[in-house]
Design a binder for these strands. Structure first.
Ligand SMILES: [Mn+2]
Ligand SMILES: [Mn+2]
Ligand SMILES: [Zn+2]
Ligand SMILES: [Zn+2]
Lengths: 147, 147
DNA sequence: TAAACTAATTGTAATGATTACAAAGTAAGA
DNA sequence: TCTTACTTTGTAATCATTACAATTAGTTTA
């Protein structure tokens, strides 16, 4: 099924006239299959064995290309490096402030907030971002490690 | 009235055993009176005339001290520098993606999202962040400049 | 196909915000 | 006063990201 997702992503590139190079294919595949939210450096390091000569600049370049055609979203964080999320459907993130784990969750209906914000500020609204912070079950000690 | 706010902030420092140095007083005053969301560098530059010898490290150090006693909040952004918000009451931000203007707005009741997130992920929830992005009236050209 | 043009990658230097750290200064207590 | 902890300062280091020039690869044109 992530096979299908990858194929769809490659189609999107084609439709937008973006060449599918081996590097792009590999970066995209990594984003789709690793269901995590990797940093540019994580992608770079993970592909180093397959592409020993790939430049870190190539990773950044192509992450920007992918953002340009809405295949991925950047999650910028102030202190550390940005993380990248392959876009399937809209969702939010909850982040453990102890171990930095990021978990997806769904919540409907924050368009209401967008409307209100637009109404009281006069802005034209395009998007919003929302993140919940807390402690994950493992860090909270509520869960016995699997053995 | 921002006089009162500043005095309250200084009290908070005292209560927490944090010394009130001239630099701390000035940085805090700047945060309270400028109702904006300044960067560390903006604070540093604005106080340069009064404190020609103040180090930029002092600004960062004290911004962290103020965060420690919940007087201010950091708004980290991936690409550019963090902005700092003097904490009065809870509110959200709407940000113009053209000119980077930040405007406060209020919205009640996102505790519901926290609850749901906690329920579906098992996290203990502490906080959330939410920002709306769009185009401000001036950048959208809906407003004639004041003259 | 060869030449010409365009897009993509690479390597490396530069940028810029933030932090680390050591030295010097300042307040406070015994 | 002596001692200790706290604070500031100046500067070097860090680290993610970007800029840029050179090289390579792909595509179009003749
Ligand atoms: Mn996600
Ligand atoms: Mn604010
Ligand atoms: Zn955790
Ligand atoms: Zn604007």
């Amino acid at each position: 099924m992530s096979d299908v997702t990858l194929r769809g992503a490659l189609d999107t590139l084609k439709e937008n006239g973006v060449r599918i190079t081996p590097q792009r294919h590999a970066i995209l595949e990594y984003l789709v299959t690793s269901k995590s939210h990797p940093t540019a450096d994580e992608i770079y390091k993970s592909l180093a064995s397959t592409f020993p000569n790939m430049s870190v600049a190539t990773v950044y370049n192509n992450l920007r290309v992918f953002q340009g055609v809405n295949l991925i979203k950047e999650l910028p964080y102030g202190d550390s490096s940005s993380r990248f999320d392959f876009v399937t459907h809209d969702h939010y993130h909850i982040i453990c402030t102890e171990c930095d784990k990021i978990v997806d969750f769904h919540y409907p209906g924050l368009e209401e907030v967008e409307h209100l914000a637009s109404h009281v500020t006069g802005f034209q609204v395009n998007a919003h971002r929302m993140e919940v912070y807390g402690t994950c079950p493992i860090c909270a000690g509520n869960v016995t490690e699997t053995h």
